[in-house]
Design a protein around this nucleic acid. Structure first.
Length: 376
DNA sequence: CAAGTAATAT
DNA sequence: GATATTACTT
């Protein structure tokens, strides 16, 4: 009898171990973001192994989920880990993956980490910025928003050097983390009134000449992670970066203080990143002639890979948003500086080579401009 | 006025 | 060099 129980238990343990190892493999990809998580799982595995190996002391009860048991085994460990906001980050990422890409994650467990690594870096970059706006003043929150923002008790811990593309430090002053609230400040039903720009104008505009200049440049606005996510979401809703207009985006985002110009600028940048990620794949050398088609707002290389179809179909169901590089789960379609040295110049030409068919709800006029037509 | 794009500032 | 703002064009 007892033996039986023990056997069962061992079996269970084996299952757990396998599951945990599987998990660990997954986490391994994110080891930069979730080092503790990784550690935790590893410890759990070891604990189980130990248990199997002998000393089947107690804990015969096999719990379906390792919840109880884990706490039993590595109680202290968990306790150590819990207070850390890691949870928030993880949820964040999960959300991200769910929203933006669902099928990709299947691939990257056995990846050679190169891309993943980069990507991770990027993510950590994003995670660094917590607040949406860098406005010093406390902004009223509209808590009646959707679930998105309650999760983030995020904070500093990810310091990481910033070599990523999106590491901006300048204007985000006083990140008085801890207390500060990365508030999203949504216009409550956006009653028109709002829209205080909060120019802030570094008051005296002290030092360095300037002064007297009324042409003061606006305070630089950081697009924090959250804000960008919002942006993306909205973009998706509107049907992709190439069909959404700044105004629509701004209105749909409902972020107080966000101006059309800011959105426009961001959109511009985003579009730039979006197009031509051309990973410089060797076989791609005729890329100049490569044709792209717009499928519901997405740029898809006409190459007709099965993948392309998959992407397209997926996007159309979810809402469109398509950087056509399927491997990057990040918010941004690709790392920048890829097609630089070559395509920078060429991009304009190739731009015209691209076949833009069917821009959904768009007046053809918009696209017909091709500034060389103005030579009348 | 709004959208796109280019130039310019940080 | 990347990102944000402003200027200019359509």
């Amino acid at each position: 009898m007892i033996k039986c129980l023990i056997n069962m238990k061992r079996e269970k343990c084996c299952e757990y171990i396998e599951a945990l190892e599987e998990e660990r493999r997954k986490i391994n990809v994110f080891q930069r973001e979730l080092p503790l998580c990784l550690e935790l799982v590893t410890q759990a595995i070891e604990a189980y192994k130990k248990e199997i190996s002998g000393t089947t002391t107690d804990t015969l009860y096999g719990q379906p989920e390792c919840s109880e048991q884990t706490t039993g085994e590595c109680g202290p460990v968990l306790d150590l880990f819990l207070p850390i906001k890691q949870s928030s980050t993880s949820t964040d990422e999960e959300e991200e993956e769910e929203e933006v890409n669902e099928d990709d994650d299947v691939e990257h467990e056995s990846h050679d980490t190169d891309i993943d690594f980069d990507d991770n870096n990027m993510k950590s970059e994003w995670l660094k910025s917590v607040q949406l706006w860098n406005q010093p003043e406390a902004v009223p929150v509209n808590k009646s928003e959707r679930s998105q923002q309650e999760t983030q008790t995020v904070a500093e811990p990810i310091k990481e050097n910033n070599n990523g593309t999106w590491s901006h430090q300048p204007p985000c002053y006083e990140t008085s983390n801890e207390k500060n609230d990365y508030v999203i400040s949504l216009a409550t039903t956006s009653g028109g009134s709002g829209r205080k720009k909060t120019e802030a104008e570094r008051g005296g505009s002290g030092g360095s000449g300037g002064s007297s200049g009324r042409g003061q440049r606006k305070q630089r606005r950081c697009w924090s992670h959250e804000l960008h996510r919002r942006f993306l979401k909205t973009l998706k809703q509107l049907g992709g970066p190439h069909v959404a207009t700044p105004k629509q985006i701004r209105e749909l985002m409902k972020v107080d203080g966000l101006t059309n110009d800011e959105v426009k600028s961001h959109l511009q940048k985003y579009r730039l990143h979006t197009r031509q990620p051309s990973q410089t794949i060797p076989n791609n050398r005729d890329s100049q002639t490569q044709h792209f088609v717009v499928v519901g707002g997405i740029w898809v290389p006409q190459a007709s890979h099965p993948k392309a179809n998959a992407v397209a179909s997926r996007e159309t169901t979810t809402g469109i948003y398509g950087p056509m590089v399927s491997q990057l789960p990040s918010e941004w379609p690709s790392h920048s500086n890829f097609g630089r040295e070559v395509s920078e110049k060429r991009s304009r030409c190739s731009n015209k080579g691209i076949v833009r068919c069917s821009s959904p709800a768009m007046s053809s006029s918009t696209r017909t401009k091709t500034k060389d037509a103005k030579m009348s």
